[in-house]
Design a protein around this nucleic acid. Structure first.
Lengths: 149, 149
DNA sequence: GCTAAATAATACCTGAAGGTGTCAATTATA
DNA sequence: TATAATTGACACCTTCAGGTATTATTTAGC
C-alpha cells in the first residue's frame, strides 16, 4: 500500500529540484542528496526528460532543470507518468467490475479514501512544495554544489 | 498504489466467507466464487489458517470456516497479516526518517490520508461486511454448493 | 479396512520492477 | 583541437511476489 519505488524516486527528484527550480542539477549532485542508486537515478532522469518534466543539457557542465513553471506540475502528473496503477475506481477486493454503482459499505468507504488521495495529488503542485521545503531536503541542501546555467 | 494481490485475495476470501460465517467452505467452492488461481488460493487458505483467521478440517467433506466472531476481525488484522507494508508513518518520498515531527506541507496532507486509511481499516470488521453484502459476492452466491458442518 | 475427497508441506517456475555495466554522443574549457 | 565531464542508449543482472506442481496426510462413508 505504497507508491512504487520509481514513483517515490520521481517525487523525490522533482520535489528536490523544485526548491531551487532555476538551477541546473547534475545527476552526480542529485545522487549526493537523494539516496537513489546512481545508475537508476540516471535512468529515471532520462525518463523524466522524455516525459517532459525536465530539460537536459549534455556535455561538460551539463545537467537537468525543471522544464516548466512549478505551478503547472501536479503530483498527479508525476505519479501518472511513472505508470503507477490508476487510483480511480479501484475495488478494495481487486475486482474490476466492483467499481461502478452501489456496492458494499466497504466500497463507499474505500471510494472516499481513493478520492481524497486523487484530490490531494491533483491539487498539489511543485510550487507548494517549494514554499514549504521538506526538512529532509533542507538539511542536506547546504552540501549541494549546484551551478547556474 | 494498491494493496498487494495477496492482501486483496485475503480480503476477498474472508469477506466472502463472512456472508455465511458458520458454513464450511472447501477450497473448490471458494475457487468457483472468488476468481483466485486454485493453487494459490490453497496456499493462502493454509496461511490464513496458520494465522488464526480460519479453522481447517482435513479429510473428506473437509474445508474451512472462520475461527472467531466476525466483530473480532478487522480489516486491519487481515491486511497486516499479509505482511503488507505498514501504513503508519510512511513518507510519500519514501524516506524512512521523514515520518516524525514537523515536515513539508505534503507530509501533513499525506499523514492525514494515511490516518484515514488506517482508521477505516481498524474500525471496519467482517461483521459490517456481512450486513452489507458486496454485490459481486451476492450475484454469484447462488452458485455455491456449501455444506454445513 | 478401502477409497475418495479434502487439506498440508515443500519445492519449483516466471515475469516484472528495480538495479547495474558499458560504451556512445555531446559540449565547455584549457 | 584535445580532454574531461556530462547525458543517452541499450543490454544485462537480481530479487521476489505471484503462481504452479507434486507428493504426503487426514478423514467420512461405503
Amino acid at each position: 500500500m505504497n507508491f512504487s519505488k520509481t514513483t517515490e524516486y520521481s517525487l523525490r527528484i522533482l520535489g528536490f529540484m523544485a526548491i531551487e527550480d532555476h538551477k541546473l542539477y547534475s545527476a552526480e549532485v542529485l545522487n549526493q542528496n537523494l539516496d537513489i542508486p546512481f545508475r537508476y537515478l540516471r535512468k529515471q532522469l532520462t525518463r523524466l526528460t522524455n516525459d517532459g518534466f525536465l530539460i537536459s543539457y549534455r556535455g561538460k557542465a551539463g545537467g537537468y532543470k525543471i522544464s516548466k513553471p512549478l505551478n503547472e506540475i501536479t503530483l498527479w502528473d508525476i505519479v501518472n507518468a511513472t505508470g503507477e496503477d490508476s487510483l480511480y475506481h479501484e475495488c478494495i477486493f481487486g475486482f474490476d467490475s466492483c467499481a461502478f454503482g452501489n456496492k458494499c459499505a466497504l466500497h463507499h468507504k474505500w471510494a472516499k479514501i481513493q478520492n481524497s488521495i486523487n484530490d490531494m495529488l491533483k491539487n498539489t503542485t511543485l510550487e507548494e512544495l517549494k514554499r514549504t521545503k521538506p526538512e529532509r531536503f533542507t538539511i542536506q541542501h547546504n552540501l549541494m554544489l549546484t551551478k547556474n546555467v
